[in-house]
C-alpha cells in the first residue's frame, strides 16, 4: 500500500466506518442518558424567572465573576484551546471545501495563515493544560487514563494537520492520510470518552438551568 492508497482508504472506507461508529456511539450514549428518564417535578415553578435550561446552555460559557482569577490557567488555556480548535475545524478553507463536497453547504473561510496561528495556539494550550494536569493537585486527583487518551486523541489531528499544511516530517500525501485517519480515530472514540461532552454539555447545562430556573435563579 502506497501513500495514495492509504489516502484513498482514509477518505473512503475509513471515513464511512468512522462516521458510522461515531453516529452509532452518540445515539447509544444518548439512549443511555435519556433512557434513565426523569421524574416530573411536582413543586410549582416560579411564574417569573430570569433563568431556564436554554439560557444556561449558552450562558455557562461565560465564567462567573471571580472564577478566572481563582484558576486563570484552566480558563485562559481552555478558551484558547476551544476557540482555536473550532476555528481550525470550521473556518479553514480546505475543511470548508470538504464540507461543501459532502453537504453542498459552504461559508467563507479565514486566511490560512491566521488559522495556522490559531491551530498552533490550540496546540500550545493543550500542552499547558497537560502540564497543569500534572501540577495542579485537584486535577491530579481527578485524572484517569481516559484524560490522557482524550488529550492524545485531540492533539493528533491538530498536530498532523499542522505538519501536513507545512509539508513537514513526511511526504504530503502520507501526512494528509495520517491527518484524516487521526480525525477518524477521534470520531470513533468521541462517544466513549470524556470527549462526549461535545454533545452532552448541552444536556447537562440544560438540566442545570432548568433545575435552577424553576426556582427563580439564573444559573
Amino acid at each position: 500500500m502506497n501513500s495514495l492508497d492509504l489516502l484513498t482508504f482514509a477518505r473512503g472506507t475509513a471515513l464511512n466506518a468512522a462516521l458510522a461508529v461515531c453516529a452509532f456511539g452518540i445515539l447509544l450514549r444518548l439512549f443511555e442518558i435519556f433512557g434513565l428518564g426523569r421524574k416530573a417535578d411536582l413543586s410549582p415553578a416560579r411564574p417569573t424567572t430570569p433563568g431556564s435550561g436554554w439560557r444556561t446552555m449558552y450562558a455557562r460559557s461565560i465564567p462567573p465573576p471571580g472564577m478566572v482569577r481563582r484558576d486563570p490557567v484552566t480558563y485562559i488555556a481552555g478558551y484558547v484551546f476551544h476557540i482555536g480548535l473550532f476555528i481550525t475545524i470550521l473556518l479553514f478553507a480546505p475543511h470548508i471545501e470538504l464540507i461543501r463536497e459532502v453537504t453542498s453547504l459552504g461559508w467563507p473561510s479565514l486566511p490560512s495563515a491566521l488559522v495556522d496561528a490559531l491551530a498552533v495556539a490550540s496546540i500550545i494550550a493543550l500542552l499547558v493544560l497537560l502540564a497543569h494536569r500534572f501540577s495542579n493537585p485537584v486535577k491530579r486527583l481527578l485524572t484517569t487514563g481516559g484524560d490522557y487518551l482524550a488529550w492524545v486523541l485531540t492533539l493528533l489531528p491538530l498536530l498532523t494537520g499542522y505538519l501536513a499544511y507545512h509539508h513537514l516530517l513526511f511526504e504530503y500525501t502520507f501526512m494528509l492520510a495520517l491527518h484524516i485517519l487521526s480525525v477518524e480515530l477521534l470520531l470513533m472514540l468521541l462517544p466513549f470518552t470524556k470527549l462526549f461532552h461535545v454533545v452532552s454539555v448541552f444536556i447537562s447545562r440544560w438540566y442545570n438551568g432548568d433545575i435552577s430556573g424553576r426556582k427563580g435563579v439564573a444559573s
Partner: peptide, 14 residues
C-alpha cells in the same frame, strides 16, 4: 437522566 448527563459531561477540569 440528569445524573447520567452530568457524569457524561465531566471533563475533570477541577
Amino acid at each position: 437522566a440528569p445524573i447520567a448527563s452530568f457524569f457524561s459531561s465531566c471533563v475533570h477540569c477541577g
